[in-house]
């Protein structure tokens, strides 16, 4: 490659080193020492932190994270596939515009959206007020429940799923569908034997994009779960807030390793690397 073009990536590399790799190294060191705050003067090497990984509160938080992430991802796959397929099959002239409108909520601030969602989920909010003025007394009293958290996770991350499944569907050559029909397959069979298998890459990449933030995020469970539901992200958050950098770092590193492992596994199955693009 031309030397000149190589230089174009320098700003990013600086950013990557300063804000990603160096902090990671520090976190890795922090998880093996015992110190106060970020003061390394009295730091001693220890493996005690690892004991914390097996305490019941960590395990529960971890299992919670896994459970919520799996439920959210599966639901996103089902709903996302239906939406993506509907757009793919629609006769809109500008499908890209439709996609843009669908993912428009992603452009507003996530915290704002979640706060708004929480508001709607509470017994009294602007909508119930308006409805009660009209004589309709209904309310959605689910704030603080697991359902609220799952709804929050799904509504936040489903655009990623729709987008990646749609991209995979759009890549399918139309002549393959004609070939399937030509070879005697009915429309339903065509879907299951040609379209679905060829769109699994989109499902996999969408799943990664949904599963990982669901697994490690902390804002949604905190706001919509109102402290009732503790995910691993919340535990890490608490440790850092309490200046317990050692345990926080350790958990963060563990999560990171799990994420890297997942990506590695996916890349094993998908040698061309199309999924992750």
């Amino acid at each position: 490659m031309n030397k000149y073009f190589k230089k174009l990536a320098i700003p990013y590399f600086v950013w990557l080193y300063v804000l990603a790799i160096i902090p990671f190294v520090i976190m890795a060191i922090l998880s093996f020492v015992n110190n106060e705050g970020l003061n390394f003067s009295k730091a001693i090497f220890t493996l005690d932190n690892f004991g914390y990984l097996t305490t019941s509160s960590t395990v529960i938080a971890f299992m919670n994270s896994l459970f919520y992430a799996v439920i959210a991802t599966l639901t996103c796959i089902v709903i996302g596939y239906m939406v993506a397929y509907a757009i793919f099959r629609s006769h809109f002239k500008n499908k890209f515009l439709v996609m843009t409108i669908l993912i428009l909520p992603m452009w507003s601030n996530m915290l704002l959206r979640i706060e708004a969602l929480k508001n709607i989920m509470e017994p009294h909010n602007i909508i119930t007020d308006i409805l009660s003025k009209l004589g309709i007394h209904v309310s959605l009293d689910i704030a603080g429940t697991p359902l609220a958290v799952i709804i929050g996770l799904i509504s936040t991350y489903i655009p990623f799923m729709i987008l990646s499944i749609y991209t995979a569907l759009e890549k399918i050559d139309y002549s393959l569908e004609e070939a399937a029909l030509d070879l005697g397959l009915t429309e339903t069979k065509k879907f299951w034997k040609v379209i679905f298998p060829l769109s699994t890459k989109g499902i996999v990449s969408g799943s990664i994009m949904v599963f990982l933030p669901c697994m490690s995020g902390f804002a949604i469970p905190e706001i919509l779960g109102q402290g009732n539901i503790l995910l691993i992200g919340n535990v890490i958050d608490q440790h850092f807030r309490n200046m317990n950098y050692n345990l926080g770092s350790l958990l963060a590193v563990v999560i990171l390793i799990i994420i890297l492992g997942a990506i590695f596994l996916v890349s094993k199955f998908d040698k061309e690397g199309e999924t992750l693009l």
Binding site: D173, S175, E178, A179
Partner: peptide
């Protein structure tokens, strides 16, 4: 049909 660009799966 044998398609122009084969349309193999």
């Amino acid at each position: 049909t044998v398609f122009q660009r084969y349309a193999l799966f």
